[in-house]
Design a protein around this nucleic acid. Structure first.
Length: 586
RNA sequence: GCCUCUGUGGCGCAGUGGUAGCGCAACGGUUUUGUAAACCGUUGGUCCUCGGUUCGAAUCCGAGCGGAGGCCCCA
């Protein structure tokens, strides 16, 4: 939800009214405050203020106390209406420049509504709860800076976020959910499980350094997607990390993407600038162009690549693994005819569905991102091609019956796209997969194929990523699983615990057999009590532990402890391997 | 980049003006163990950096760098 919210949902009305309550409290505590906007949002609300002095996090309880005091007055919340000139004059007298600006922006119409509670009044479309006494279960969460009207050219205001719920139980449940999310933070778990580190040496920490277990996760994830892609008829290619800058001038990226490219590297002798590759598309199209003349019989042609790209993200944008400067896309470019767009889209959809389901993401929604209203701007102008591409996507989505919604102004400069949003176990939404139609770049870079009538034509390109980037997806996965990865994905699948030194040789022997069978196993031979090693391997979330002692040597067995299920008892090595194969498949 | 907050041994933390402490880890030793923490001992910190205030700074102030939450962006 955003400030385009028009009311009607009781939960949102409650949050909207709580935002007003907070604004009134802030007004009483900070005379001279200027109010901007205060909408309800997913799970809560915020209000933007311009303040004579900053609000700090430790001031929030004081504001909450004042809110409770105002709520206890049980002030009726009353709608009032003014004609536009009176409303404008009213806010000018009140020295509320942001409200004046909002009024000037409202669509033509004579009547403008305000909501009053006691002696406090705010420009607002409403609706609201009947009285401040109805507001009981809320909490202010944190403060943040936010630009007026969301533009970095404007003044930065102080935004206070809060949450509000109809009952104490729901409020507590929500606060618990926040705590749980904090405990699952991938940066925290990544450190605890020894997956990756951020070193100050790695340029503003936009470059994660992966430890052996983290690299194993990357490897397993990439191998899996590679296997699926091969099965779906994709071909994997490799185009490296450096690209001549003139390619990006021809593709259009130089004009549209320059701010996220690292500065050029210069070859003075040859008078050539090179760039670290920020995207694969132009490279794949170059590969297409220089690997023989293509006919319609060669299409669709699907070039996939796992390559690390480099983007010069602003320092304040960096965030753990979910926003980095070196990112590895599971990228693919599908060269096809216009007639093949729909079937290729469906094939990609099936692939995405299979992969997301393997990772335990049950359902997803699609956001169809289209060109904005205004012609020109960042979008390459060619109305016919835009509408053709847009219709192809709509048609493919309609025929597959996937739920989707449209977002104007969110498209890439070269065409519309479909982004796949999914929710993790905590209900948070993530954008992962994407499919983008491109009628522009193939033409710019001179991609051709010969059609049935022997004529040269320009192929359509679908840009497609399944997991998006390995880094971000891993971050999402860590939080999704809380670090407790399924057996097939776990960087270490099996820990072998020899009870005493004399069991060491047997443990090594079993470990060798398990590795030969394709499992990721390690012997924990530290001189610690068995129970301590079990505890630590549990905390490291190793899915299976094999306890090996005198009884096992005597009977030729292994004693299996499965994380989550406990002691499964002794099995022969063959039975154990069969059990692990079963675990790896599920 | 912008706003607010923040920075103490490998990790998690305590210490608010009188030149640093705890737990875990690491290391040495004892122990040889059957399903979530054996015992004893020992290392290890120019308290992010630079500058200032002060007789004296981990502690106060300023700048820089890093981190967190947001904003603008975005895979």
């Amino acid at each position: 939800m955003n400030d385009s919210y028009h009311g009607g949902d009781p939960l949102y009305d409650l949050r909207h009214s709580t935002a007003h309550l907070m604004a009134q409290a802030v007004g009483e505590l900070y005379p001279g405050v200027k109010y901007a906007i205060g909408p309800p949002i997913e799970d809560g609300f915020y209000y933007d203020f311009e303040l004579p002095e900053p609000i700090r996090e430790e001031d929030l309880p004081r504001i909450e106390d004042k809110m409770r005091e105002i709520a206890a007055r049980d002030l009726p919340i009353v709608r009032e209406e003014m004609r536009r000139p009176e409303a404008r004059a009213f806010e000018e007298r009140a020295d509320q420049p942001y409200k004046v600006a909002l009024i000037d922006d409202l669509p033509e119409g004579e009547v403008i509504s305000f909501y009053r509670q006691g002696d406090w009044i705010d420009l607002c479309r409403g609706p609201h709860v009947p009285s401040t006494g109805a507001l009981k279960h809320y909490k202010l969460l944190h403060t943040a800076g936010a630009y007026w009207r969301g533009s970095e050219k404007n003044r930065m205001l102080t935004r206070v976020y809060g949450t509000a719920w109809p009952s104490k139980a729901e409020l507590d449940a929500y606060l618990n959910r926040l705590e749980e999310a904090k405990a699952r933070d991938h940066r925290k778990i990544g450190k605890e499980l020894g997956l990756f580190v951020f070193a100050p040496e790695s340029v503003g920490s936009g470059i994660p350094l992966f430890l052996p277990k983290g690299e194993m996760l990357r490897h397993v994830m990439e191998s899996y997607v590679r296997e699926v892609q091969t099965r779906y008829g994709y071909q994997h290619v490799w185009t490296g990390h450096l690209v001549r800058e003139d390619l990006y001038k021809r593709s259009g990226h130089y004009d549209n993407y320059a701010d996220v490219m690292f500065p050029p590297m210069r070859d003075e002798d040859a008078n050539i600038n090179y760039r670290l590759k920020p995207m694969n598309c132009p490279s794949h199209m170059t590969l297409y162009n220089h690997s023989g003349l293509r006919s319609y019989r060669d299409l669709p042609l699907r070039f996939a690549e796992f390559c690390t790209l480099y983007r010069y993200e602003k320092s304040g944008e960096l965030n753990g693994l979910t926003r980095v400067r070196s990112l590895t896309q599971d990228d693919c470019h599908i060269f096809c005819t216009e007639d093949q767009i729909e079937s290729e889209f469906k094939l990609a959809l099936a692939l995405i569905q299979e992969v997301l389901s393997r990772y335990g993401f049950q359902d997803y929604r699609v956001r169809l991102s289209l060109r904005g209203e205004e012609p020109g701007g960042k979008y390459v102008a060619d109305d016919e091609k835009w509408s053709k591409a847009t219709n192809a996507l709509r048609s493919a989505l309609d025929s597959t019956g996937v739920a989707y919604y449209e977002a104007a102004g969110e498209a890439a400069f070269y065409g519309p796209k479909a982004d796949f949003m999914t929710n993790d176990v905590l209900g948070r939404e993530w954008q992962i997969s994407t499919i983008q139609v491109d009628f522009i770049q193939p033409a710019r870079l001179g991609c051709k194929y010969i059609d049935e009538e022997g004529k040269e034509r320009t192929p359509v390109v679908l840009h497609r990523a399944v997991t998006g980037t390995t880094e971000r997806f891993l971050g999402v996965l860590i939080e999704h699983y809380g670090g407790d990865f399924p057996f097939w994905l776990a960087p270490q699948q099996i820990a072998l615990i020899p009870i005493a030194d004399r069991h060491q040789a047997y443990a090594n022997e079993v470990c060798t057999a398990l590795r030969a069978a394709g499992f990721r196993a390690e012997v924990d031979s530290r001189n610690e009590k068995m129970a301590k090693r079990i505890r630590e391997n549990e905390l490291q979330k190793v899915p299976v532990q094999l306890i090996l002692g005198d009884r096992d040597i005597e009977n030729g067995t292994v004693s299996i402890r499965r994380r989550g299920a406990g002691d499964l008892g002794a099995k022969s090595l063959e039975d154990a391997i069969a059990y692990f194969r079963e675990q790896a498949a599920s």
